[in-house]
Amino acid sequence: MTLPVVAVVGPTGAGKSDLGVELALRLDGEVVNADALQFYRGMDIGTAKLPPGERQGIEHHLLDVLDVTEEASVAAYQQDARRVIDGIRERGRVPILVGGSGLYVRAALDRLEFPPTDAGVRARLEAELSADGSTAFRERLRAVDPASAERIDDDRRLVRALEVHEVSGRPFSAYMPRREYHQPAVQIGLAVDRDVLRERLAGRVRAMVGAGLAEEVRRLAASGLRDGRTASRALGYGQFLRVLDGSMSETDAVEDTVAATRRFARRQLTWFRGDPRVAWLDWRAPHLAEAAAGLVRRSAGPILER
């Protein structure tokens, strides 16, 4: 039998990182990061990256693997995460995926195929879109992929769908993910009290500012943060870049970050609540880690009787 991947999911601020470490201690596991912003070196305070001293000796993978000028890629992450997970299993240990970036979690866990890209084809299609207009382009897509034509409502994705069809010969809709695990997996979601979480997130942002978020952004700006398409738009970082530029006050940056973080947490909850395979546990339950470990052991059967 194959050791399952254990995934700890849920909204930001729910305590996923701490639970991941506790599960690794109980199940003889190693943690694999599934937070797209914790890939970045130096983005520590604003991403709530668990400091090495709080990892209790547990090996953490896929943290600090990108410079802020690099763009995160779900397709590249899928390859890296599966390679790391296979390595953990080969050592006889339990891979524990931790993070709230929903698409990255699915890329690691599910049968998810990424459509091909071709920059030249895309550039030509973008020029044709400018010349012909959205209506004509939607009709072109409808002729080869009616399902995508009905669903897509913006020009960028119209171009992408036609690019995929031209490059692969398959409709864009054929690449839609299915909720089917690539390998055995157990997902544990942290169920939150939304009102409590709202206040917790506000306090968390203010604590990040007190811990030196502005200085972290200033240091990363000198390393090219503004040039990073992914990193520069991260919660808190985009706001404090504007503080550096003089276009936003620090007070407004804090309030804007709090509001954006709360919206992000709601989107995360919607995403994970939509997956019926997630087993939910109260984020503040007594003995949460032991309850989670017991859930994994029951799901995995004799292979995890250790």
Score class of each variant (00 low, 15 high):
residue 80 D to M: 14
residue 82 R to K: 09
residue 82 R to N: 07
residue 83 R to N: 05
residue 84 V to L: 10
residue 84 V to Q: 04
residue 84 V to S: 01
residue 85 I to V: 13
residue 88 I to E: 01
residue 88 I to T: 05
residue 88 I to S: 03
residue 89 R to S: 10
residue 90 E to A: 15
residue 93 R to V: 06
residue 93 R to C: 08
residue 94 V to F: 04
residue 97 L to D: 02
residue 97 L to K: 03
residue 99 G to W: 06
residue 99 G to L: 06
residue 100 G to P: 09
residue 101 S to N: 10
residue 102 G to H: 13
residue 102 G to F: 05
residue 104 Y to Q: 01
residue 105 V to Y: 04
residue 106 R to M: 09
residue 106 R to H: 12
residue 107 A to T: 01
residue 110 D to Q: 10
residue 111 R to G: 11
residue 111 R to H: 13
residue 111 R to M: 07
residue 111 R to E: 14
residue 112 L to T: 03
residue 112 L to Y: 15
residue 112 L to H: 14
residue 113 E to G: 01
residue 113 E to P: 02
residue 114 F to A: 03
residue 115 P to V: 12
residue 115 P to N: 12
residue 115 P to T: 13
residue 115 P to L: 11
residue 115 P to Y: 11
residue 115 P to C: 10
residue 116 P to W: 15
residue 117 T to Q: 15
residue 117 T to W: 15
residue 117 T to R: 15
residue 118 D to E: 11
residue 119 A to Q: 14
residue 119 A to Y: 11
residue 120 G to T: 13
residue 121 V to D: 04
residue 122 R to V: 12
residue 123 A to V: 09
residue 124 R to K: 14
residue 124 R to M: 14
residue 125 L to V: 09
residue 125 L to I: 06
residue 126 E to S: 14
residue 126 E to A: 15
residue 127 A to Q: 15
residue 128 E to P: 02
residue 128 E to N: 05
residue 129 L to P: 12
residue 129 L to S: 15
residue 130 S to N: 13
residue 131 A to P: 09
residue 132 D to C: 03
residue 133 G to P: 09
residue 133 G to V: 10
residue 133 G to S: 12
residue 134 S to C: 01
residue 134 S to L: 08
residue 135 T to V: 15
residue 136 A to F: 00
residue 138 R to A: 08
residue 140 R to W: 04
residue 140 R to I: 07
residue 140 R to G: 00
residue 142 R to E: 08
residue 144 V to A: 00
residue 144 V to D: 00
residue 146 P to D: 02
residue 150 E to Q: 10
residue 150 E to C: 03
residue 154 D to Y: 04
residue 155 D to A: 14
residue 155 D to S: 14
residue 155 D to R: 12
residue 156 R to A: 14
residue 158 L to S: 04
residue 159 V to A: 08
residue 159 V to I: 13
residue 160 R to S: 09
residue 161 A to T: 02
residue 163 E to G: 03
residue 163 E to N: 07
residue 163 E to R: 11
residue 164 V to M: 08
residue 164 V to S: 04
residue 165 H to M: 07
residue 166 E to N: 03
residue 167 V to Y: 12
residue 167 V to Q: 10
residue 169 G to S: 04
residue 170 R to W: 04
residue 171 P to L: 09
residue 171 P to H: 08
residue 172 F to C: 03
residue 173 S to R: 06
residue 174 A to L: 02
residue 174 A to I: 02
residue 174 A to S: 15
residue 174 A to C: 05
residue 174 A to F: 01
residue 175 Y to G: 07
residue 177 P to Y: 06
residue 178 R to F: 10
residue 178 R to V: 15
residue 179 R to F: 00
residue 179 R to E: 10
residue 180 E to L: 10
residue 180 E to R: 12
residue 182 H to R: 15
residue 182 H to V: 00
residue 182 H to E: 12
residue 184 P to T: 04
residue 186 V to P: 02
residue 187 Q to T: 02
residue 188 I to A: 10
residue 188 I to C: 05
residue 189 G to T: 08
residue 189 G to V: 07
residue 190 L to M: 07
residue 190 L to H: 03
residue 191 A to M: 09
residue 192 V to A: 10
residue 192 V to M: 05
residue 193 D to H: 08
residue 193 D to A: 11
residue 194 R to Y: 02
residue 195 D to H: 09
residue 195 D to N: 09
residue 197 L to V: 11
